[in-house]
């Protein structure tokens, strides 16, 4: 992947295709530009190559053809699973990435405290992951990613396993963070509501092979309030996204 310049955009896919060694065509001819401060969500049926797209963006996979470029190598990743170390307490999990960079101890401390405060986990610093709920584990994962001050965030269905109440709450917190820290984000989900609520652009993918089948612009300003979900405009946009999805199945 390397740190090539991407001409103003923080992430760009240029005609990216990905064929796995077993012949599976996971992603076909995807082109996508993510400008600074963009929040793009990708929705699609399961098995449509959304996660592959994200792994390509992260540099964990190299495309078969086409090019993926990022403006800055400092990428924050939050996966489906919270990927915490079960033997580490919350604060030591949050501090992991800074440890890898060998930051001075007091700088680590400061960033850990800051990140834990940002995700509202004060008071849980010394808990082990197994003592936390799924939603709280996701917050720890988010806090860990925040400690490197990434300009670009990649989310792979981070709240997919949570109940709707926790998911909505985390959506609001994520938007608050988005407002406060101004990163750009590529967020993968299979929930239409979540996609419309979070992003300024929803990209719809179709399956086998994974390709972009449509896009819906979401014109609402940030910050957004939870009641937005019940507005007629929101319903209208959700219907458009759902329409694009149903053409695919």
């Amino acid at each position: 992947m390397g740190g090539m310049s991407a001409g103003g955009s923080s992430l760009s896919f240029a005609s990216v295709s990905m064929v796995f060694p077993d012949g599976t065509e996971a992603v076909k001819d995807v082109s996508l530009e993510l400008a600074a401060h963009d929040f793009i969500t990708i929705v699609g049926p399961s098995g449509c190559g959304k996660s592959t797209l994200l792994r390509l963006a992260a540099g964990l996979l190299l495309p078969t053809t086409g090019a993926v470029s990022v403006a800055d190598d400092n990428i924050g990743c939050v996966f489906q699973d919270s990927t915490l170390m079960p033997w580490r307490t919350v604060e030591r999990n949050v501090g992991l990435l800074n440890e890898l960079e060998r930051l001075p101890t007091d700088e680590c401390r400061r960033r850990i405290e800051e990140a834990i405060a940002l995700v509202n986990l004060n008071g849980f610093e010394n808990h082990l992951p197994r003592q936390l709920s799924g939603g709280m584990r996701m917050r720890v994962s988010l806090a860990r990613a925040l400690t490197t001050y990434p300009r670009l965030f990649l989310f792979d269905e981070p709240f997919g396993a949570l109940d709707e109440i926790s998911r909505n709450r985390l959506n609001d917190e994520l938007l608050r963070l988005f407002k406060e820290t101004r990163f750009s984000a590529l967020f993968i989900t299979h929930s239409v509501t979540e996609a419309v609520y979070l992003s300024n652009r929803v990209v719809v993918m179709g399956a086998r092979p994974g390709q972009i089948v449509g896009e819906v612009n979401i014109p609402f300003d940030y910050p957004r309030s939870p009641s937005l979900r019940f507005s007629p405009e929101f319903g209208q946009l959700s219907a458009e996204v759902a329409e694009l999805l149903s053409d695919e199945t």
Binding site: A58, G59, L60, I75, C77, F79, T83, M85, L96, L97, L100, E101, T148
Partner: peptide, 8 residues
């Protein structure tokens, strides 16, 4: 977790 470490 391997991925997390690879990314960093």
């Amino acid at each position: 977790l391997h991925d997390v470490l690879t990314l960093r």
